[in-house]
């Protein structure tokens, strides 16, 4: 078992940067085996690093395994919040993160979302850092103080 002390700040930083840069560059969130292979580190060490990053609210792990659900704002699986930019398709876990993908990449983008009630498509466009087209209203169901009580629900 990897000791917490082995997961140094340097390793956490290395894993963090790899995960987020891969997600940004490829539109796909890397998982532990791939991260370990790319960094030349034991998978158990990478998994421990991911657990610590999740505990620090840097990313979110799937509930029942060590895989990354979201390296926020990048979601590892398709969602109703689709971001098209740089010739790629990204996914956010919510509309905040879909907008966050655009902010993170600093690129022009189209967000194709769906109404949470009726599923009708809604379109937002960002160009040169400005929201140039928007539809709909954003709703936060959970007060800010409780966002991380259950981030999946939030």
């Amino acid at each position: 078992m990897v000791q917490t002390s082995d997961t140094s700040d340097a390793v956490l930083r290395q894993v963090r940067l790899f995960v987020f840069r891969q997600a940004a560059d490829t539109a796909r969130v890397p998982q532990p085996r791939e991260i370990a292979a790319a960094l030349g580190r034991p998978q158990s060490e990478v998994e421990e690093a991911l657990r610590q990053l999740a505990a620090g609210k840097v990313l979110i792990l799937a509930p029942n395994d060590g895989n990354i659900w979201a390296a926020n704002p990048f979601c590892a699986v398709p969602s109703p919040f689709r971001v098209e930019t740089r010739g790629k398709t990204y996914w956010g876990i919510c509309i905040w993160d879909a907008l966050g993908i655009v902010a993170t990449l600093g690129a022009d983008a189209v967000i194709r979302a769906a109404c949470g009630d009726c599923s009708e498509p809604l379109l937002l466009k960002i160009k040169a850092g400005k929201l140039t087209r928007s539809e709909g209203i954003i709703h936060f169901a959970v007060p800010a103080h409780h966002w991380w009580d259950n981030i999946g629900y939030t």
Partner: peptide
Amino acid sequence: RGATLTPEQGWQLADGWYK
């Protein structure tokens, strides 16, 4: 019912949070 934002507010929030 919670709180609502305009898409412009959402964009400003996301930009400040994630850039």
